[in-house]
């Protein structure tokens, strides 16, 4: 793959957690490329290293060894300030538990990345309302997260992840707390609104119902990428073991 067309390039990435009593190898030489314009899903059993891998890719966790480049930038060797600025500008997050700030309204929550990037509060909130309209929540801009349904909260979280036009959107189980229809809608939204040719989407999921949306699926087990499959390919048994939901075949 041409390096300039890559959003993420990971080579032999190792991450070991030292818990004092024992050392746990979460990533054991991971190699992964994610192309621009690609929606990559990471699947695998619980504890296989998916969350650690997206944490490294998102620049919120340093690997112990190996190389991880995001949009051509080596995150490990960046200064803290540079990495903060890089994250603020280039990474959007969508979490399983939404992680909205409960005291802020939907619009205020969505405006947070812009404020972190230095935009004035009023301008940021104005833009937030516009993005909320894009995700179909313009009328609920002043509602608190507690006043929104799970699907609505996830849409607010997606609006928050998109508002500053990041080039990489990292999603951790974005649909697992949602029913089938809402999960489908959220994925449609993510794919339609978030994905462009200059962007990439990485989604960690156990939810077989959304595998259809992936361009490629990387199966992980025991800190490795076991297999990367294109659309329409049956997942291997490794991804279906333990706590992992079986991967369905593409229609």
């Amino acid at each position: 793959m041409n390096p300039s067309s890559l959003a993420v390039h990971c080579q032999n990435v190792v991450k070991i957690y030292d818990t004092g009593d024992q050392k746990v190898t979460a990533l054991n030489g991971v190699n992964l490329d994610i192309a621009l314009g690609e929606l990559m899903m990471l699947v695998g059993p619980s504890g296989c290293g998916k969350t650690t891998l997206i944490s490294v890719i998102a620049g919120i966790l340093d690997q112990d060894s190996g190389y991880c480049e995001v949009f051509g930038e080596d995150l490990l060797n960046m200064s803290n300030q540079h990495k903060l600025n890089f994250r603020a500008r280039n990474i959007g997050f969508v979490f399983q538990a939404f992680n909205l700030l409960p005291a802020l309204s939907a619009a205020e929550n969505v405006s947070v990345p812009l404020i972190i990037n230095g935009m004035k509060r009023n301008d940021a909130e104005r833009k937030a309302v516009a993005v909320l309209e894009q995700v179909g929540l313009g009328a609920r801009a002043t509602a608190l997260p507690s006043e929104l349904s799970g699907g609505q909260q996830q849409r607010v979280a997606i609006a928050r992840a998109l508002i500053h036009s990041p080039r990489l959107i990292v999603c951790d189980e974005p649909t697992s707390a949602l029913d089938h229809e809402t999960g489908h809608n959220v994925m449609t939204l993510l794919k339609d609104v978030a994905l462009h040719n200059d962007r990439a989407l990485v989604i960690v999921t156990h939810d077989a119902r959304i595998f259809d949306f992936a361009d490629r699926i990387a199966e992980m087990d025991d800190g490795h990428i076991v297999e990367v499959k294109g659309v329409g390919v049956q997942a291997s048994p490794a991804s279906t073991s333990k706590a992992c939901t079986p991967v369905a075949a593409k229609p």
Partner: peptide
């Protein structure tokens, strides 16, 4: 703490 973590992840120093 989780909220501070979210802000930190999003690039707050």
């Amino acid at each position: 703490l989780r909220q501070f973590g979210v802000l930190k992840a999003m690039g707050t120093s």
